[in-house]
Amino acid sequence: MSAFPASAPSHVPREFADVIRDHLADLAEEMIAEIQASVPEYARPGDEKYVRAVRRAVEEALRLFLGRTAENGSGKGRLLEVYRAIGKGEANEGRPLDSLQAALRICARVAWRRLALESERLNLSHRRMSEVGEAILVYLDEIAAAAAEGYAGAQIKVAGELELRRRRLLDLVVADPPADPRAVEDLARAVRWTVPKTVAGVALAARSPGAGARPALPPDVLSDLDRSDPCLVVPDPDGPGRAGILDVAVRDWVVALGPPAPVHEAAQSLRLAREALTLARRGVLAGDGVIRCADHLSTLIIFKDEALIRVMRRVRLAPLGALRPAQRDRIAETLLAWLQCGYNANEVAARLHVHPQTVRYRLRQATELFGDQLKAPNDRFELEIALRARALSAQASPR
């Protein structure tokens, strides 16, 4: 809307309209020359089609300005329609609104300069000069506001279409089976996304209903937080400066980062991230920071087939069944630590914060219980998996 009072003249004094009409071609040339010299975005001397478009826009502006005399301001609707379309075109061309506004100011300045040159010949009074100047400013304000409205509308539309395309690209990247690489490359080119060498899928879950504020992420991160299973695709996750880009999200979201993978394996990376997210929500994995699947691969393997793990626990941990619950827990904890610490009782004692003699006593009990299982490497491996699964499950239960 105009920033000037309602009493400001909406028509152009006839004397000045006659000056513009007589010098329309010269004024248009002068305005175009100054616009191209002062606004880099409009300087395309070798593009004849573009120069003609600029010329049409300038001549249309002058004709509509002249219409203020003949129609006494009644052509305002047409004026605003034209400049909304111009603003929309600028947005679609990707030029900043400042460039258009600068061009409009240049046109107003050239028009006023022409008036100053002709004022003495026309014998215009100071009052008449003021009316012309105010008419120019009111006109400039109206068309600038209309152009800004068209520009904003186009930006919203373009942003919406771009976001839809980026979401479609995300769907293609994480498709299983993988999408045609040519389709990915074509859509990536359309949204100006450089296809990276590696990507990582990211699974997210809001920490509480309605509490998931959208994190500020780099523009090359593909995201869709509105779907039932929110996810991201992070390009080159191991690249310089990439390690902390998800840290901004962990306050409101539980975030699981899948392992780096080639683009055609993005679905697998996202699948692992979702599995890690599920384990975090169960309490198996800590979810207070970014959960990096690469740091929890063994846990993901253990919980990949829980039915199989239950069978392994029944078979390998059967000797613990004869013990009281508290004693069972102590023996299982000590035996797992011993297997993980390379069979070093002193390290086990330091890890569990007990005396080495206590560790040795418990290990003698474990040897009596498990016997040959502690001798064969394959049996020890399965026993460690079973004990690890038991410990992780116990960790999750209270949560």
Rank of each mutant, 00 (worst) to 15 (best):
A111K: 08
R121V: 04
L62W: 10
G133A: 04
A61D: 11
G87V: 01
G67D: 00
A91W: 02
P40Q: 02
R109E: 13
H126T: 14
S38G: 05
N123I: 11
V54T: 15
E93S: 14
K76R: 13
G87L: 10
A28M: 03
A116E: 15
E41M: 01
E134F: 04
D98E: 14
A53S: 03
G67S: 04
G89T: 01
K88S: 12
V51T: 06
I86W: 01
A61E: 05
L62Q: 01
E134W: 05
A70W: 13
A103K: 06
S74R: 15
R14P: 14
D22Q: 15
A25E: 15
M129D: 05
A25M: 10
G46E: 07
D98N: 14
A70V: 15
L137S: 09
P13D: 08
P96G: 01
P5G: 06
E120I: 10
A43P: 04
D47K: 00
G75C: 05
I35T: 08
H11M: 00
E134I: 06
G133N: 02
E71M: 11
R105D: 04
G87I: 05
A37S: 14
A108L: 10
I136V: 04
E90D: 10
V132H: 02
I143A: 09
G46W: 11
K76A: 11
R105A: 08
A17M: 11
A111F: 12
E81L: 08
V58R: 00
G73K: 10
L97T: 03
A37E: 06
D18Y: 12
F65A: 09
R14E: 15
E93A: 15
S99Q: 01
Y83I: 08
Y83N: 10
L80P: 09
G77K: 03
A6L: 00
E29V: 12
A102V: 07
R95M: 14
N92V: 12
L97H: 06
A53Q: 02
A91H: 07
R21M: 13
L24R: 12
G87N: 03
P40F: 01
Q101L: 14
R113G: 14
D18R: 15
I143N: 05
G67T: 00
L97D: 01
R95G: 01
E15F: 14
L27Y: 09
N72M: 13
I32A: 15
Y42D: 01
V19L: 13
A91F: 02
S119P: 03
M31Y: 06
F16R: 08
E134K: 10
E29N: 14
R44K: 06
E142G: 07
L115D: 09
S2I: 09
A145L: 03
A91K: 05
A57N: 06
I35A: 09
F65N: 09
M1E: 10
